[in-house]
Every structure is written in C-alpha cells, then in structure tokens.
Design a protein around this nucleic acid. Sequence first.
DNA 1: AATATAGTTGAGCAATCAATCAACCGTCGT
DNA 2: ACGACGGTTGATTGATTGCTCAACTATATT
Lengths: 121, 121
Amino acid sequence: MPEAFENIDRCDCNTIHEDVIFKVRQKMPQDETLMDLADLFKMFGDSTRVKILCALQLSEMCVCDIAVLLGMTKSSISHQLRSLRQTKLVKHRKDGKVVYYSLDDEHISGIFAQGLAHICE
Amino acid sequence: MPEAFENIDRCDCNTIHEDVIFKVRQKMPQDETLMDLADLFKMFGDSTRVKILCALQLSEMCVCDIAVLLGMTKSSISHQLRSLRQTKLVKHRKDGKVVYYSLDDEHISGIFAQGLAHICE
DNA sequence: AATATAGTTGAGCAATCAATCAACCGTCGT
DNA sequence: ACGACGGTTGATTGATTGCTCAACTATATT
C-alpha cells in the first residue's frame, strides 16, 4: 500500500483515483503552512476586523477613533486589535494616553483587492 | 453635531480626532460590501476548507478523493463543499455516481498567493 | 493627591460552527 | 429487483468565538 493512502483508516470510502491523490499529495504545501494560512484568513473572516483593517488602510487611528467610527465599545475594539496585533497585521505606537494603530503588512491591500474582485463579479 | 458621530450613543468614549473619523467614514466601502467580504474570507478561515481549495487548485477531484487525501469522512467533506459551493468558490459536475469538484473562481490563487506572502515574511 | 480619560484584560455568556452519526437518494453492476 | 457504493442531508454535540461587563493600569490635568 503506497504512502498516499496512509490516512485511509479515518476515511469511510474506497480510493477511486489513486493517481490524482498521489500527485496532489506531493504538490500540497505542508500541513502547518495551511494551518497558518487558515489562521491568517480567520482574521479577515469577521466583519468588525474587516472594518478595522479597512479603516486603518485609510488612516492611522487610535482606539477611540475606531470605536466611534464603528459605533462599538473601546473594549470590543481593543480585543479585536489584540488579535490583529498577534497576527502581525497591525502595529501600534503610544503617545501619552493615546495608542495609535496602523497597518503592519503590505499584503493586506492586495488581499482586500482580490476579495473585492470576487464579490463584484 | 455632525453626522460622523451618529453612532456615539453605542460608544463609550469621547471623540478625539473628528477630522480623521469624518474622512475615513467618507471613504469606507458600504457596510454590506464589508460584510460580504468577511463572509468570503470566512471560507478561507478554516484549515479543512483551505486544504480542499488548495487541492482543487492542483486537480479536479471527487468527494472520495478529497476524503482520502485529507483522511476525513465523506460527510464532513461534503458539508464543507456545500459551503464552498454556496460562496461560488467551487463548482461540480456529475458523472454517474461520482461528483467531481473544481475551482470556480480565478481570484482564489491570487488570495492564496497574498496570504502565503504574509506567512513567509 | 485626586480625578478623569485612554486603553487593556479576564471572566462569563450567547451565538456560531465543524465534525459525527444515522438516515437517505441516485446510479451502477449483477 | 437487489445490494453496493458515491454522495447528500439534518440533527446533535463539543469547541470556538465575539461582545459585555467590571476591574484594572497608565498618563494627563487640576
């Protein structure tokens, strides 16, 4: 039994196209990469975070600014910014009491553009 | 009170940078668009769906093929394919008993590429 | 020192979600 | 007609998740 079918125990069906499975398995990125990719896109999969990222694309903003803009509490915004910080999508600088957030990745606008292209098909 | 602060009732803080909020609010895409965008990226925010999309990028596959490849049940794969179908990310053709799935969007590879670029920074 | 404001944090809760299970449909081979 | 197989579906369940609330830190003002 070739290595391509090592997972057959957890699967409830027979193999139909051995060649396809073998070829695809060889070319697939490794599991960890795809997990990281999913975790990244998870950040774009919530409307609040999308709005925050979209806003920061237009201007650096403090937590209060974002809260007023979206009509939400500082707390909820702060929680989301924490996630975005951990995923290295936003960065922050402190000026007195105020914490200013801005984008920390040049790929974000590209990801948005591709997504919008799909929406507006 | 300018219209830029119409949401101030749901917010628990004073406005700091009126000009920034006003400018950003004018340039932001409308709410519905951003909701749709989040719904799209939600599809990329799960490792099983990412793997399915990644596999279909390499070859057309039937449900059993994908199940064997990922070591999961037909049922769980079928459930995920249903979501991907509804979001117009994959299409299917039937040949006898077998249902073949393939990508239905040319932007997917672009989205993947941008995401991977962020991962591998 | 006292107060107010900007922001963070952890616990709790309701909603969302992905895998499981069992039942089912449709097509093929006999 | 029957059984086997590929695939779908709905209900259930355990886990994840986003917002709220309350408590807290830190900086600025008086």
